[in-house]
Structures are given as C-alpha cells and as structure tokens.
Amino acid sequence: MVFIRSIALGASIVGIIGVSSAAQVLTARQEPWVPGTQNNTQEFYVTLKATTASLEKYNGWTLQAWHTGAGLADPVFASDSPSPAFLNGTSLQFDVSPYPFGVDALPSDENYGRWEPVTITSGYGSGPWVNNEADGLQVNAEESDGWLVCEWSHGDNAPQLFQLIKGFDSVGTSPNDVPATCGRVLLIPEWI
C-alpha cells in the first residue's frame, strides 16, 4: 500500500512517499550566538584582591585579555571594561566571543622557576579550576601555590597574572620574596 503524507515545515509543504509509513522530516537550525548566553552557570568578573601592600592600588580591578596574537592573550587586570567569566566544569572561560576562550593555568615545573606565565587562548583552557570561597579561584593541583601579579611588559596600568609553583623557593627565602613590582593576590569572583 502506498500513501502520501504531508508535513508542514514553516511556510512550505513537503510531500513524503512511503511504503508502510512515512519518516518525519526534521530540520535543525542553529540559533545565532548572543553574548552572555554561551553558558548556563552564573557569570562573574574575576577581581584582584592584593595580599601585599605594593599592589593594593589594583584591588577590585578585573581580569581581561591583552591580545598578543591570533587566539592568544596575556591575562591582565584593568579598572574598566570587565569581561564576564564562568566555570565550565573545571575550565575558567570568558563569555566574550562566539568561540570559547579559556585560561590556561596548568602548573608544572618545566622551567624550574617559582612562577610561570598564565595565558588566555581560544579553546576551553586548562585547570582544574575551583572556587575556594575565601581564597577565591584556584587551580586544584599539587604544584599550584597561588597567584602572582606583576607590573610587567604591559606597563603599570595592566598588571599581568602569573602562577606560583610550589617547591622552587631557595633555601632561606620566603614564599613572599618576589620582585618589587610583583605581589601575591587572590582571584575573587564578583558575581553578576
């Protein structure tokens, strides 16, 4: 037995011919991306809280991307134009583009230094990031020893974020012995 079944799709009619039953025709349409909708968790700004007096002038500044190349940026703090962030599982991402942008902060001892660069790249980033409430955002890894911000290559109006690594303090030095233009900080989420 042959029969014809019609399914209305929008303003057009599509006819389907089948032997015993007609398969439904489905169309999928991707919705256009709208800023602020890339995630389904609560967004926040990553704000700086200085734990050393030398950086208190930057308290409350927010983490932003300083473009350094295609899909690459240094994380710096600025007093204006905050970028909304969110935790996507254990990745720290920014909701600023139709593409994922995440913070790469997987601690390692590859350079045998007390701190390493942190980067923002296209993609989901690395971590694993957690919110430890009073201690703020942290990377939950044995080698991670918190955050360092330095008035570095982008000048004193864009202090740059670095990651401290455990186990590389020299004998007789304090974990707080850092260059005069640097200091330990906390990364506190400011919920929006």
Rank of each mutant, 00 (worst) to 15 (best):
T37Y: 05
L164K: 13
T52N: 10
N39R: 06
C150Y: 10
V34H: 12
F3R: 08
L63E: 01
I192Y: 07
I120S: 03
W129C: 05
N131G: 07
F94M: 12
T41S: 12
P107N: 15
E133R: 11
V25T: 10
V25C: 05
L106A: 13
Q160S: 13
A8V: 09
P159D: 11
N140A: 15
L186F: 15
S21D: 05
I165M: 07
P35Q: 11
V19E: 10
A11V: 00
I165N: 10
F77S: 04
Q24Y: 03
T51S: 14
T41E: 12
G36P: 08
D145H: 03
L187W: 14
V76D: 07
P100Q: 07
L87M: 11
V96P: 00
V103W: 07
S81T: 08
S97M: 03
G10W: 03
N59K: 12
T47E: 12
P75S: 05
N59Q: 11
Q30D: 13
D156L: 05
I7E: 14
E110L: 14
A134F: 09
V139F: 08
N157A: 06
E56K: 15
K49W: 07
T37D: 05
A105G: 01
N176I: 02
V19C: 05
Q42M: 03
A85E: 00
S81Q: 11
P82M: 08
A73Q: 03
L137H: 03
T68D: 00
L164T: 08
T47Q: 15
A11E: 03
P117F: 12
A105K: 01
T47N: 04
W61R: 15
M1G: 14
T173R: 12
P107R: 15
D109T: 10
P75N: 07
T41F: 09
